[in-house]
Simulated assay, not measured.
Amino acid sequence: MKFNLYHTCISVLDLDKSKKFYQEAFGLKEVRRIEAEDGSFILVFMGTDENPYMIELTWVRDRKEPYDLGDNEIHIGFRVDDFEAAHKKHEEMGIICFENPKMGIYFVADPDGYWMEVVPTR
């Protein structure tokens, strides 16, 4: 039996804002979309041509209040081939929320407060 990672789901309040964030910050594009017949939810899968793993953005029509992320001790990691350029871009976007220079990594926060770790390709 063989398992492969497929996607991670995060719940978002503003689907368009989240899509724009992941497009701009990480170069992800909409790969697939599922819409409920009654309009109650939309699932948007964001990914790249090079990697089959995706982030699923789940939007629920009736949700108005921000999601409780608890201690927000979870994150999604991105490996990047040009760490300095990525850091500069994310710094210009104003989305860096934590840096650990000793480990050579940093984190950015998306519009809903989820953290994404950025790690250089080593």
Score class of each variant (00 low, 15 high):
F3V: 09
E30I: 00
N100M: 10
H75R: 07
D110V: 03
Y22D: 01
D71E: 15
E56T: 03
D81Y: 12
P66Y: 11
R122H: 09
D110W: 10
F83D: 06
M1I: 11
G77S: 15
V12Y: 06
C97P: 01
G27N: 10
W115E: 11
Y67C: 11
T121C: 12
M46C: 05
H90P: 00
E37S: 14
F26A: 01
I74C: 15
I42Q: 08
N72W: 05
L28D: 00
E99V: 03
G39H: 09
Y106L: 03
F45G: 00
T58Y: 11
E99N: 05
K102W: 09
G113H: 03
C97H: 05
V44Y: 00
K88E: 13
L43W: 13
E24D: 14
H7G: 11
L43A: 13
M103L: 13
V118C: 04
Y106K: 08
G113P: 04
V118P: 00
R61M: 10
Y114R: 02
Y67D: 12
K17M: 09
E35Q: 14
D112L: 07
G113L: 08
S40Y: 13
E117Y: 11
G104Q: 07
D112S: 08
K102R: 13
K19Y: 02
I55R: 02
G113D: 02
E92N: 11
N100A: 09
P111F: 11
R33W: 03
